[in-house]
Design a binder for these strands. Structure first.
Lengths: 218, 218
DNA sequence: CTATAAAGTTAGATTAATCTAACAAAATAA
DNA sequence: TTATTTTGTTAGATTAATCTAACTTTATAG
């Protein structure tokens, strides 16, 4: 079994690495708020346990075993977020910190029950894919809103780097998953966009737009 | 803030001490499965934090502060058990180990939500009282089934020391909280009892009967 | 292609929580 | 009331996870 601390390193690797699966010691250090020497020594420990591939001065990579274990933690996190929103009535901006703790609960039955009560959801409340029971994550590639052009009509599919502040910002503008957005114009200077949706019009900065993942609407 | 470890010591004290509020180092040691020297040093630490009264060679007592903090942990435990049974469909024999972990979640909102969704319950699924939002526990005194006499009719109010095994044993005999039990006879030799309930008749050992808390039925 | 900056590692210290071995006090039994 | 058992404490070691300071390697910019 892995310690809570080890689980946090695995999850950080999983989230930082993306599809290729690499992350630098420095990235991990900043992401976890833990100094580099500590990260280095933990990487050696995880390498001993065959959870990561580690060579001095090179980026770290999860092994298949590590990827699976990390995926299962992320699964627990995202299932929990979904449960908190769907079954307990929390807002999507409130659930991250709670899920951050509940993801470490050791009880397959508990998460299976959530899964079942939710009807085996594929996505969490922020549109992120929930890894399957083997920890396998189905990668979906959306477009960033900022990569779309004036005139496009898109559907909001996911929110990335969704800090509580950002999610509240979206709440205040009535922006939620599934929403149909029409791009009226894009400002060449700073990439800000004028959007219409739900019969209203709003201007969104590029900083915000980068965090909104969309697909072309039919 | 208290560490997870400290929380476990506080809870153990709360559960061991009962109404008077004392527990010996030895009791704590056995209850927690931790060696006595470790317990002693933790008691000193908790005394520093004004959570317990500690004097060498004397039983340990929770301070008011300690009692409150311990009570709030027990509250989280029991609310969780209730939630797992009532809202997630777990059996009363399945919830202890999960609640043991969830009780350490730091999120007042999470437990407030449970409380609200449950309609502010006073008792957990085993009939134990849930401490209030100040950690205060309302003591109720029931009778042990073994203290009743042949001819008595009682209502089952709570189960103590309810290990998973014991709860399954009760399930197998259709014994549940709220059940009306009629005591047909008591065996003088070993205290075992013949009971009728739900139109059936069963014999129960004193070992089992001691763990069943009842009140006289009207 | 060197010089500087950034990233990574090594060595050694610290803290929390645990242990064992040895000793001391209190409770119990003879 | 003394001897023995039980309970509790002290001292010192261990492990996991962290840190800082100093050094090394790799990357970047003149």
């Amino acid at each position: 079994m892995n310690s809570l601390t080890e689980e946090n390193y695995l999850k950080a690797l999983f989230n930082l690495a993306g599809e290729n699966g690499e992350a630098s010691v420095n990235d991990l250090s900043r992401h976890l708020g833990i100094k580099m020497p500590t990260v280095t020594s933990m990487m050696k420990k995880l390498a001993e346990k065959k959870l990561v591939h580690y060579e001095s001065y090179k980026p770290v990579r999860l092994t298949d075993k590590g990827k699976k274990e990390a995926g299962l933690i992320v699964r627990k996190h995202r299932l929990t977020e979904m449960y908190l929103v769907e079954k307990m009535g929390f807002g999507w901006e409130e659930v991250h910190d709670i899920a951050e703790q509940i993801e470490h609960i050791q009880s397959p039955a508990f998460f299976d029950k959530m899964d079942q009560l939710l009807g085996f959801p594929k996505l969490d409340p922020h549109g992120a894919v929930i890894p399957d029971k083997n920890g396998k994550l189905a990668w979906i590639s959306y477009h960033r809103l900022t990569d779309c052009r004036a005139g496009d009509t898109v559907r909001l599919c996911a929110v990335v780097h969704g800090s509580s502040d950002f999610l509240l910002f979206l709440n205040n503008r009535g922006i939620r998953l599934g929403l149909r957005l029409k791009i009226r114009s894009v400002e060449a200077f700073d990439g800000s966009m004028v959007l219409t949706y739900d019969g209203r019009q709003e201007t969104l900065s590029a900083t915000a737009g980068e965090r909104l993942l969309v697909e072309k609407a039919k």
